[in-house]
Design a protein around this nucleic acid. Structure first.
Length: 555
RNA sequence: UGGGGUAUAGCCAAGUUGGUAAGGCAGCGGGUUUUGAUCCCGCCAUUCGUAGGUUCGAGUCCUGCUACCCCAGCCA
C-alpha cells in the first residue's frame, strides 16, 4: 500500500480515481496496443509502464493487444520481440496476448450494422477523388457521389468487397458522418479497405481489412477496456472513437485519454527514423547499444527496474517534452551504485614497471567487492612487477589539481600500495611508453607511518595476469539535442558515438557471464556484451561515473 | 476567428474547492572518502507564456494577446 502511495499521481490516475469513486467503474482495465511493425523503444516503455502500472496499482488488468490491421507492414518476428520486451520490462499481460485480428468477424458485422443504419457506404471514388472531396483544414469537404447509395446496394457491395470481387483501391467502406466537420477524421473516414495481403494471424481469410479508427475502439469495447490510453496525436481521433462506439450495438463504453509521447535528447524515437538508422547501417542493428530501442538499452546494460524508474520520474502529462539524457542515466547509476560489484579495468593501458618489486612475484591482494555492502565479499587481485595504469593517470608534471601520478610524486594504487614515479621512457613521437616507479611495501592496507599523503588513488591491472578485453564506449548518437527537428536528421549523427578501446581487465572478470554488470572503478558501469567469448572479452560501458572534475576542467 | 491541444526553474514535474510556488534530474558551494564515485550538509522560481481585469488575496477565476505541437493515409 505504501508503495502505491509513493507512486506519483498524474491526470489519468486522477480520472480513474474519480471514476472509481463515482461508481462509473468498479475496476480498471487497460491495454498496451502496439502494431507489430517494428521494435519497441523507450517511448513505448513509457506507455507500457503507464498501462501496466495502473493495472497493478488498482488491482485491475492490462491486456497486450497487437493492433494488426495492416498486414503488409507486420510480421511475427515483431510480435515475438514485442512480447519479449514487455516481459523483460517485468510486466505480465492478462491472459493470452490479444490481436485486433481476433475480432475481424465481429468488426465485419459491426460494419454491416453501420451500413444497415445508413451510417456507412461503399465508395467507388478513386483515392485522388476522395482526397479532393475531403476539403482542406479551412474549407469543408463535399459529399461523395456514392454517399446516397441505398442500404441494400451497400450491403451487397460490402459483401462483394469481402468476397474479393473488387480490386485493391477500387472501393472502400466509409462511415457517413459529416463532410464539413472541423475534425478532418470525421469527414466520412474510410473504415475498411481492400487488401489482398497475407496476414500473420488470419492467413488468407480476409481481403478486406478494417482501419485503425474503426478497429481500436471496438477492440477496446470487446475487451472491456475502461481507460484507453494513447498519445496526443490521437486527440482528434477521439471524436471518431466515440462516434463508432455510440453507433454500434455494444454495451461497453471505453474512454480514450491522451498523454504526450516521450522525446529524449540526442536520439530519435520515431519508428521511421529508427528503421532508417538500421537500414542505412548507421548502427549495427535494432539492439545496437546506442539505439533507444528496448533491445538496445538492454544490451547497453540498462535494467528493467532502471527503465521503470525512469518512466516514473518523467511523469505523465499532456505537455510536449524533450527529456534530458541525464534523467535516464541517473536511474541506472543509482541502481548500479548499490548493485554492481567493483572491479579494476584499464581502458587505455600505460606500462608501469616497479623497479623495487621482485621479478617473478605475484601477490594476490584482497579487494573489497563493494564499499557499502560487506555481504558482497572480497576477491583476490594479482599484483606484479609490471602493471598497466590508465594513460591519462600519468603526467611528467602537473599542477596541484591533478590528483594522479606525477614524476617524483606518490599515489595510492587502489587496493594496493603507494607508488612513486621516478622516470619514464618515450618513443620517437614523444609518446610515453613506460613509467618506472618504486613502491612502498609498508603501505598495504594502511597509510605510511611518517604521515606522507598520496596525491590520489588510481586503478591498475597486472600486466602479466590481466586479461585483454575489447571495451566499447558509447556517446550520444546525435550531436544535436533534437535531431528529429533537423531537415536531415542523419546529417547530425555523432561520428564518435562508438569508441572501441583495447583494454586490460583484472583476471576475475575472465569468466563473467554475458550481461553481468560491474563498476569498473573510476571509469563507469559496464556489462558483458553478447559478443563476448572467453578468448575475446567484450564490455559495454552502460554509463560513466559522474565526473565533476572532468566537467570543471572542460572550461 | 478552420479545429484539437499545451504553456510553472536549464530539463521533467506537483500544485484539484482562490490563502502566499512540492519533488526529481542537472548545476553550484562545503564535509567525509584507498573510486575526482558514493554518502552527508547547504544553495538553486518574490514568481507561474504575456497584457489587463475581478478579489483583502490569483499559478489557480474572467478577458485579450503570443508561442509551440497535432489534424487534409484506403498508416497507426
Amino acid at each position: 500500500m505504501a508503495e502505491i502511495e509513493n507512486r506519483p499521481s498524474n491526470f489519468i490516475r486522477q480520472i480513474i480515481d474519480k471514476d472509481l469513486q463515482s461508481g462509473l467503474h468498479s475496476s480498471v482495465s487497460t491495454r498496451f496496443p502496439p502494431e507489430p511493425n517494428g521494435y519497441l523503444h523507450i517511448g513505448h516503455a513509457k506507455s507500457i509502464c503507464l498501462n501496466f502500472g495502473i493495472a497493478q496499482d488498482y488491482q485491475g488488468t492490462c491486456n497486450l493487444r497487437f493492433d494488426d490491421t495492416n498486414p503488409e507492414k507486420e510480421d511475427m518476428d515483431f510480435v515475438n520481440s514485442i512480447k519479449e520486451d514487455v516481459s523483460w520490462l517485468g510486466f505480465t499481460w492478462q491472459g493470452e496476448a490479444r490481436y485486433s485480428s481476433n475480432y475481424f468477424d465481429q468488426l465485419y458485422m459491426f460494419a454491416r450494422e453501420l451500413i444497415e443504419k445508413g451510417l456507412a457506404y461503399v465508395d467507388f471514388s478513386s483515392q485522388e477523388t476522395v482526397r479532393a472531396l475531403r476539403g482542406t483544414l479551412k474549407e469543408p469537404g463535399q459529399n461523395s457521389p456514392y454517399r446516397d447509395t441505398s442500404i441494400e446496394e451497400n450491403l451487397a457491395h460490402f459483401e462483394k468487397m469481402r468476397a474479393g470481387d473488387y480490386k485493391e483501391g477500387e472501393c472502400s467502406l466509409r462511415a457517413k458522418i459529416d463532410m464539413s466537420s472541423s475534425f478532418m477524421c470525421m469527414r466520412d473516414p474510410v473504415i475498411y479497405r481492400v487488401k489482398f495481403a497475407h496476414h500473420h494471424q488470419t492467413g488468407d481469410k480476409w481481403c478486406i481489412y478494417p482501419m485503425y479508427d474503426f478497429t481500436h475502439c471496438i477492440s477496446d469495447a470487446i475487451e472491456g477496456i475502461t481507460h484507453s490510453l494513447c498519445t496526443l496525436e490521437f486527440q482528434d481521433n477521439r471524436r471518431l472513437y466515440d462516434w463508432v462506439i455510440e453507433n454500434i450495438s455494444i454495451d461497453c463504453t471505453p474512454r480514450q485519454y491522451e498523454f504526450s509521447r516521450l522525446n529524449l535528447e540526442y536520439t530519435v524515437l520515431s519508428k521511421r527514423k529508427l528503421i532508417q538508422l538500421v537500414d542505412d547501417k548507421h548502427v549495427d542493428g535494432w539492439d545496437d547499444p546506442r539505439m533507444p530501442t528496448i533491445a538496445g538499452i538492454r544490451r547497453r546494460g540498462y535494467t528493467p527496474s532502471s527503465v521503470r524508474e525512469f518512466c516514473l520520474r518523467i511523469g505523465v502529462t499532456k505537455m510536449d517534452n524533450l527529456v534530458e539524457m541525464s534523467m535516464l542515466e541517473a536511474c541506472i547509476r543509482e541502481e548500479m551504485n548499490v548493485s554492481a560489484p567493483r572491479r579494476m579495468a584499464v581502458l587505455e593501458p600505460l606500462r608501469v614497471v616497479i623497479e623495487n618489486y621482485p621479478e617473478d612475484q605475484v601477490e594476490w591482494l584482497d579487494a573489497i567487492n563493494h564499499p557499502m555492502d560487506d555481504t558482497m565479499g572480497t576477491r583476490k587481485v594479482p599484483f606484479t612487477k609490471e602493471l598497466f595504469i590508465e594513460r591519462e593517470d600519468f603526467k611528467e608534471s602537473a599542477n596541484k589539481k591533478f590528483k594522479r601520478l606525477v614524476l617524483e610524486k606518490e599515489v595510492r594504487l587502489r587496493n594496493a600500495y603507494f607508488l612513486k614515479a621516478n622516470r619514464c621512457d618515450k618513443d620517437d613521437k614523444g609518446e610515453i611508453t613506460t613509467v618506472y616507479c618504486t613502491y612502498d611495501a609498508d603501505t598495504l592496507g594502511k597509510d605510511p607511518e611518517d604521515g606522507r599523503k598520496a596525491k590520489g588513488v588510481i586503478h591498475w591491472v597486472s600486466a602479466s595476469e590481466g586479461k585483454p578485453a575489447e571495451i566499447r564506449l558509447y556517446d550520444r548518437l546525435f550531436t544535436v539535442p533534437n535531431p528529429a527537428g533537423e531537415d536531415e536528421f542523419t546529417a547530425t549523427i555523432n561520428p564518435e558515438s562508438l569508441i572501441i578501446k583495447q583494454g586490460i581487465v583484472e583476471p576475475s572478470l575472465a569468466d563473467a557471464p554475458i550481461a553481468s554488470a560491474f563498476q569498473f572503478e573510476r571509469t563507469g558501469y559496464f556489462c558483458v556484451d553478447k559478443d563476448s567469448t572467453p578468448e575475446n572479452l567484450v564490455f559495454n560501458r552502460t554509463v560513466g561515473l559522474r565526473d565533476t572534475w572532468a566537467k570543471q576542467n572542460q572550461g
